[in-house]
Computed example of a mutant assay.
Amino acid sequence: MEDAWLPAAPNTGHTYRDRVDAAALQPRAGLPVDAVPSVSGFYAARYPHSSRLLWLQRLAAGEISRNGQVLRADGPLVPGDRLAWRRPPWEEPAVPRLPAPLWDDGDLVVFDKPSGLPVLPAGGFLEHTVLRQIERRVAAGDLEDGAGLPRPVHRLGRFTSGLLVCARCRSSRAWLSALLRDSTAATPGPAQPAGCRKRYRALIAVGPASALAGLLPGESLTITTPIGRRPHGRLGAIWAAGGERPLPAASTLTLLERREAGWLVEVAIASGRPHQIRIHTAAAGAPLLGDPLYRPGGDVEPLVLPGQGGYHLHAHRLSLTAPEGRRLELEAPLPPRLRRLGDGLGMAP
């Protein structure tokens, strides 16, 4: 349906603000000794997606100011300097519209987020996000905000569909954040905190050397590969298997169906690391089908960004215990490709 999408459209631009601290002025590997203390060097080190030459061009265009004064050329920095980059308007790609809530009790609001829709402004998206669509819906009177604006409590990747929890009250957001925050892998395996259980559906590409290759339908495997920061060609660093200062993590995969085009699995996560399911399935030699970033074994494609899609991952079920003790059982309907064959729609394109 045509009205199910927001068409590509220009936004009004945005100002990105930074404060310079002493650590940011230390020389970085791969840059000239005098590179980082300059404005262009600071930006090139902090935002490696753009080269130093491009930051010099932005300076010349008058897009960058230091301590409130517009700069036209590069210059030195000192700790405490305040920088602002006024990014000109750019066109944001078309995205799906946010559907009506699955649940709304006056405080908690739960949406079935479509694949392709970012949750918060980032990665080239400013207006075409869940948050902005909620704000516009409230302004139009289509969504109540009596206890405050419903704000997302957690993130889902742009191309991850399914349950997204929002809350109007600040205290509820704090409670939910603590509940949804990772429990670490102190108790790895299917056992998850009694207060929160998260289950996903996904399609994976299982290689012959994968730890999952011998799995039979109904059987499970727990993956406890730590997740840390590793070098990345465009972002400087990215979350991946192992890496620097790795954090414990646990995911349990249960095989539902073997298919030629990809195995259908359910994933229960006992921690909440960034891109955890994408990283864990890849580390086990069975990355999400169509994932362009995470390679079998845990390596990453150096020029691919996390926001690039192609994979099939859905936040299907979420169980929460509210502060007053009531149990919330939430479920987002499965996309056709993530349904079992027995449903009659499991292999739909």
Score class of each variant (00 low, 15 high):
Glu144Gln: 14
Val33Ala: 15
Gly236Phe: 01
Ala84Met: 06
His232Gln: 09
Val110Asn: 01
Val206Pro: 00
Ser50Thr: 11
Trp175Arg: 08
Leu345Arg: 15
Asn67Ser: 11
Gly80Leu: 08
Ala139Asn: 09
Glu144Thr: 15
Asp105His: 07
Pro27Asp: 13
Arg230Ile: 14
Arg234Pro: 02
Ser51Arg: 12
His232Glu: 07
Arg87Ser: 12
Leu164His: 02
Pro335His: 10
Ser115Gly: 11
Ser271His: 07
Ala9Cys: 11
Asp299Tyr: 06
Thr321Trp: 09
Val78Cys: 11
Trp239Ser: 13
Pro76Glu: 12
Glu91Gly: 06
Val138Arg: 09
Ala4Gln: 13
Arg201Asn: 08
Ser220Val: 07
Leu71Gly: 00
Gly307Gln: 14
Arg181Asp: 14
Ala268Gln: 14
Gly344Val: 05
Thr281Cys: 15
Tyr294Asn: 00
Ser65Asp: 12
Ile238Gln: 10
Pro333Met: 07
Arg46Ser: 12
Ala35Asn: 10
Glu127Ala: 12
Gly157Asp: 15
Asp18Glu: 15
Pro296Glu: 04
Asp104Ile: 06
Val138Tyr: 07
Thr281Val: 07
Trp55Ser: 04
His314Cys: 09
Leu176Ser: 01
Ser50Gly: 11
Ala100Asp: 14
His128Gly: 09
Ala261Lys: 11
Val130Ala: 04
Arg317Cys: 11
Gly116Arg: 03
Ala4Thr: 13
Arg17Met: 08
Gly124Val: 01
Val109Asn: 02
Val300Gln: 06
Val153Phe: 01
Val267Ser: 02
Phe111His: 02
Arg197Gly: 06
Ala250Cys: 13
His312Val: 03
Arg72Ser: 12
Arg137Val: 04
Val36Trp: 01
Gly189Ile: 08
Leu117Glu: 04
Gly13Trp: 07
Arg151Trp: 11
Thr12Glu: 15
Leu253Val: 10
Gly272Ser: 12
Pro27Val: 10
Trp90Ala: 13
Ala240Ile: 00
Ala282Asp: 02
Ser271Ile: 05
Asp74Glu: 07
Leu149Ala: 06
Ala185Tyr: 05
Leu247Ala: 13
Pro114Cys: 06
Cys169Lys: 15
Glu219Ser: 12
Pro287Glu: 03
Trp90Asn: 10
Asp18Trp: 15
Gly218Val: 06
Gly272Pro: 07
Leu212Lys: 06
Asp299Pro: 09
Glu92Ile: 05
Asp18Pro: 01
Arg132His: 14
Arg170Glu: 15
Leu164Gly: 00
Pro37Tyr: 08
Leu334Gln: 08
Gln26Pro: 01
Thr187Glu: 14
Ala270Cys: 10
Arg82Val: 12
Gly236Asn: 03
Asp74Thr: 02
Ala348Val: 13
Cys166Asp: 04
Ala73Val: 07
Ile269Phe: 02
Ile238Phe: 08
Ile64Tyr: 03
Leu176Ala: 04
Leu289Val: 01
Ser65Val: 03
Leu149His: 06
Asp142Arg: 15
Leu179Ile: 05
Trp90His: 14
Leu120Thr: 12
Arg151Leu: 15
Tyr200Asp: 02
Leu59His: 01
Pro306Ala: 14
